[in-house]
Write a protein that binds this DNA or RNA. Structure first.
Lengths: 144, 144
DNA sequence: ATATTAAAAGACAAAAAGGTCTTTTAATAT
DNA sequence: ATATTAAAAGACCTTTTTGTCTTTTAATAT
């Protein structure tokens, strides 16, 4: 459903938000990659993209690393997914038609659109903070 | 959402079923590729896969081509998608965890699973015939 | 039987996604 | 000021997906 890149992105962001809000500290790429079990350098590249889009913050140098403000905790999953997979993700036709809507639908438009819309609604309504809270509670997990 | 391969597969199958049931004839790969606007040889390869799985039938030689029986019209979208993208499509964790379920969920399991299940239900309940009927009515389209 | 036809099969190639490694930049502790 | 540290940047590689082209196989019309 999501690209690998997107999966790593979401897991990394949840980890960073949780950790950086817990101890008011910065967290390094090595730790992130270890804790979410993702390829280190690849994850670093993904975080560069998210950093440019100000979804996550970073500082270089000693005691540097990634961190997020509480304001950034309000960022929606859709913002992350769009930053990675582009702004048109979950907007296109299920069968790849360039134009597909009520006025000229593909054969599965009627069946598919409600589901695609539910996906968009979910991504729009879910923010990072709520997911990090569940992680902190221990009711959800980032690995295995 | 679907792979390109899957998009072409579904569009080709709907076209073949509609055409072959209309005129009780076989339809060639050239015509299929033209009519659904897909790459000819690539579409041929996809149909080879679907043919091996008996989702579509074919005969070689003069007046040969692809065709489908009414029984094959009862084939579900899920059968096509699984034939192409593998049996575990729309079964996995949204964040790529190898184990993710109610007993040990990823952070978005609760939000994601109902949507994934709706997708599976839709693919399970939609058969080729119903889509081909809409195409024949002129209420849906395979191109643009 | 044979020529013709059309799918099947297989070898290749381009593009995109996923991933690794090295060098550069910039922050900061000393 | 300088050494150290850690992210940023960039070169490169691998795998998968998508797509093309050629050859082979098999059906059938003659």
């Amino acid at each position: 459903m999501f690209s690998k890149t997107c999966e790593y992105a979401i897991r990394a962001i949840i980890y960073i938000y949780n950790k950086s809000n817990l101890c008011d500290c910065k967290v390094g790429i090595k730790e992130i990659a270890t804790e979410i079990q993702s390829p280190e350098h690849f994850t670093a590249k993904i975080l560069q993209v998210l950093s440019r889009q100000e979804i996550v913050s970073s500082v270089k140098g000693p005691n540097g690393g990634f961190y997020m403000s509480s304001a950034q905790g309000q960022i929606k999953l859709l913002d992350i997914v769009r930053a990675i997979d582009g702004p048109r993700v979950f907007m296109g036709c299920a069968l790849g038609l360039s134009q597909c809507d009520e006025s000229r639908p593909c054969p599965i438009h009627t069946e598919y659109k409600p589901i695609r819309d539910k996906m968009l609604t979910m991504l729009t309504n879910t923010n990072v903070e709520s997911l990090a809270t569940k992680l902190e509670e221990g009711s959800v997990f980032l690995v295995k």
